[in-house]
Write a protein that binds this DNA or RNA. Structure first.
Length: 132
DNA sequence: CTCTTGACCACTC
DNA sequence: AGAGTGGCCAAGA
């Protein structure tokens, strides 16, 4: 059989499934860990498209947007969905501050066993050749 | 096939 | 602090 073409979204889902309970990650990080840096948007799209089986499998509530350098926030547009996400996280003992932010120093998942300097906000962005 | 629209992010004024 | 821009991919009209 032909190798199952794993879509980009499946790649994201695979990473997200590894996020442990009580920890969170940001869209940008998930993108990096999936081997597709700078595709943060697509992580969001992939999650927005979650349905059926994947909806149960993937802990979508543990993926949030970034706010400032060490904080994550709910970025789901639908207020209902956002409320659900927050509730699910609080149930996992993840704490939100008055501004609705999560401190990544406390609750940020460091990543899938990838060696990473103790730097929580944004890894170095090596100047890559920008091709056009 | 083209066009639009999405849970984003980092960089620049 | 807020607005603009480029980057990236998939699905549906």
């Amino acid at each position: 059989m032909p190798p199952a073409p794993e879509s980009l979204w499946e790649l994201y889902y695979r990473v997200i499934r590894k996020i442990p309970r009580g920890k969170v990650a940001t869209y940008g990080r998930v993108a990096e860990w999936s081997g597709k840096p700078r595709t943060a948007r697509h992580v969001g799209y992939a999650l927005a498209a979650l349905g059926g089986k994947d909806r149960r499998d993937v802990p979508w509530q543990r993926v949030l947007g970034t706010r400032g350098k060490g904080f994550a926030v709910v970025t789901i547009r639908d207020p209902m969905g956002g409320a659900v996400q927050r509730q699910l996280l609080e149930r996992e003992k993840v704490r939100f501050d008055e501004r609705g932010r999560i401190d990544l120093a406390r609750f940020g998942w460091p990543g899938p066993s990838r060696r990473r300097p103790s730097r929580r906000s944004r890894s170095e962005s090596p100047d890559k050749v920008r091709r056009r």
